[in-house]
Simulated assay, not measured.
Amino acid sequence: MKQLLTVAKYALLLALSGVLMWYALRGQDLSLIGRYMREANYSWLVLTMVLSALGYFSRAHRWQMQLEASRLRPGYWDVYHAMMVGYLANLVLPRMGEVIRCSVLRRTAGVPVQVALGAVITERVIDLLVLAGLLGATLLLDFHKFWAFVVSLFSDRYNSLAAHQGLLLTAAGLLLLLAALFGYLLYRNLERLRQRAFFNRLETFVRGLLEGVFSIRKLRRPGLFLLHTAFTWLVYYLMDYLAFFAFPETQGLGVGAALAVLTFGAFGMAAPVQGGIGAFHLMVQSTLLVYGIGKEAGIAYALVVHGSQTLLVVLMGGISFVASMMKSGRVARSRGERVEVRHETTS
């Protein structure tokens, strides 16, 4: 039953991607979109793929620094391969890639899953703060234009929420009441719960998770960590900007437009769908409309950019998957040999 629910959940998310993609393509000239894609200068896309690969190497080093702050010493390539396997998994299982890459790193480098996952959570929080800053910068650069754009994106949802304000407040109050009741019961029965093995394992997991989350406070070189963060987002920006030159329709767009595409495209990639499919395309197309780029040209740009990056993740993630499986096999054999040696010694 659990497996059936999991399959149904991911099937529903895939269907949502399809609906978003259909909405982005609805009423457009598909032959014109195809012509834009055929006439694109793909040498610029190759350059963006090279930059993207450098960004992945930088992100892996940043994650390694967080793990080292938790007194762990995984090898760089173990960290990198685990991260890329996670990105590959996200193309099929939205948001599960973070858990999968931590599991891979446990098998290849012995890093506890909870500590690695805590570091990933901190990484995501930092990226969210950067994204919030980029959104603010985008709005400030062209406030009137993009304020209208943001309002148009969220006005319908806001009106729908406002119409059910009383119901939402009641639900929020009930949730707070239940949370308070749960906290009280947990506090009253803490000693009794600690006598149970499951609760002890859960407590150990949470402690390790928090250790990974707060590992950022113990970084040996915080300046280098910030440099890697800045470099990663600079790479994202340059990818969007350089891709403009692949299409005659977008060649005249400037740095402000690239910042807007980066910001709203990132929101699309953050959507809980496979690889941002549909959500990314719709957000980028809508952003380019603000700059006078037609829907067909905008969706062609989004398709080519997203497609090239997806291809890169498949290639790099596939190599990392093979490397990780080989490494985990060697580690398992090594552990088995050590167990046999200890058994023979004791006997």
Rank of each mutant, 00 (worst) to 15 (best):
V151E: 03
A180G: 11
G212A: 10
A162T: 06
K218L: 13
W147N: 09
L117C: 08
V150M: 11
L153W: 04
L238T: 02
A162V: 05
F205Y: 15
L224I: 14
H144G: 05
G212N: 05
A180T: 04
L175M: 02
A119H: 10
L131A: 12
L176P: 06
E203V: 07
S155N: 13
L226V: 11
L227K: 13
A197F: 06
R188D: 10
S215A: 14
L190D: 12
L227M: 14
S152Y: 12
F205G: 13
K145T: 06
R220Q: 11
G183K: 15
R220A: 11
S152M: 12
R188W: 06
D240F: 15
L185K: 08
F231N: 09
L176V: 03
L227R: 14
F182C: 06
F146H: 01
G166D: 15
L168Q: 05
Q165R: 14
A243V: 07
A172L: 10
G212F: 03
W147C: 07
G133V: 00
L190R: 15
I126W: 07
V130A: 12
E203M: 08
G133F: 04
R192I: 02
L117M: 14
Y184H: 15
N200K: 11
F231Y: 13
V151Y: 07
F143C: 03
G212I: 04
L129Y: 08
S215N: 11
D156H: 13
F182Y: 01
F146R: 00
H228Y: 02
L238Q: 08
L227Q: 11
V125F: 11
L185S: 05
L209F: 09
H228R: 03
K145W: 00
L153N: 00
L129V: 11
V213A: 02
H144L: 06
G183E: 14
L186E: 00
A197Y: 06
F182I: 02
